[in-house]
Design a protein around this nucleic acid. Sequence first.
DNA 1: GCCCTGCCGTCAGCACGATGTAAGCGAACC
DNA 2: GGTTCGCTTACATCGTGCTGACGGCAGGGC
Lengths: 219, 219
Amino acid sequence: MRLLLVEDDDMLGQAVRDHLVANGHATDWVRRLDAAEAARFATPYDVILLDLNLPDGRGLEFLRSLRRGGDTTPVIITTAMDQLSMRIDGLNAGADDYLIKPFDLGELLARLGAVGRRYAGNPNPLLVIGPLEVDAPRRVVTVAGRSVELSAREWAVLERLAQHPGTLVSKVQLEDALFGFGDEVESNAVEVYVSRLRKKLDAGVIHTVRGLGYRLAPP
Amino acid sequence: MRLLLVEDDDMLGQAVRDHLVANGHATDWVRRLDAAEAARFATPYDVILLDLNLPDGRGLEFLRSLRRGGDTTPVIITTAMDQLSMRIDGLNAGADDYLIKPFDLGELLARLGAVGRRYAGNPNPLLVIGPLEVDAPRRVVTVAGRSVELSAREWAVLERLAQHPGTLVSKVQLEDALFGFGDEVESNAVEVYVSRLRKKLDAGVIHTVRGLGYRLAPP
DNA sequence: GCCCTGCCGTCAGCACGATGTAAGCGAACC
DNA sequence: GGTTCGCTTACATCGTGCTGACGGCAGGGC
């Protein structure tokens, strides 16, 4: 796998990088991030290892902007033992897993494998439903040949629907796609985004199953 | 399917078990697990529903030992809303899906179907009766190739009938499918929904047994 | 720094489908 | 023919989903 390691501690960074490389993962190591780097770094990696405890405190910010931009690269965050709140914030901001420092290198590999595996089962290049085409890896949507711009949340909803075309997707699942796991939201956000999607896409593609959820296309 | 339900809460366990049994799944319910039981329980089930929040906190341990022993029985974990870390740990320990309490019983069935199907090898447990096709996990019904929209109650009745095709299903059973068990109803709701179903489906599929109930196809 | 723009989450009003009940009618059984 | 049971339609009510609008916020351009 291709990994990005964000870690400001020299000793630790070096050790982790060596261990990862020794186990066959192409690993890039950076000590800090700025906004300019964020966009450049995101896409080409399979998993990002992110130290939330960066001296400039921008780890969380980086993660948020990544997810806001629609990037779904798996992210594992690392925090110190006592920083529970930061861990929660990280997971809510879209992290996929976390490790508590000091962590065992073997466990790091195991988590890496689990996260990578969970997202790897994606031999799904192009989904075509009538006039709608969804290119998940490239994050491109076209309707009747015309390309459509989607915001991050709109994309999150459509992607979750497109993962199981024709199958019922419950509102709870869509809420999970919109917000992290735990963030409970008392509103009709899902309905709002479905409505916004319908306005942008061909109206008939997203079908309502009253009282349960939605499904993409047929019937 | 044969299910194992691990849930320490009496009320919830009873309710879930009843609902699963009512929907045709042979369900064993245990309140807790110890290491000795783990091995015994694992193999013969199609899916295991595991409450990670067991009072002795050994739910995760059970899951890990199961996977370590090579058992691949699909496991769906249930956790409270605020237990993010536990859910992550559960997925990493080898769980196949998760549900957040409180969960909708209909959604539970949908997830069960999805997980069970993913591992069962038969991707589409389709019930075919003449021109009628019922795809329960995907909640799709087609008549002569044309797909049909059903409301929640209509689906509940048809699903109960389809669970035992050709067998007599009493009116009381159908009332239980429509409303909860205890809720007694003084009306002809069952007849109304059978009528509505007949209008949407091919008329000949639902057969009346006077004084007793209904059966799906052949007379 | 300041303004502008686009996205986000929330809310409230509206519209429509689903639901349960009742009543009239037809069929089956005696 | 009478009675019982089931079928169908109609209708009022209720809940749910849809959509337009608004304020907050962050990012980018100037």
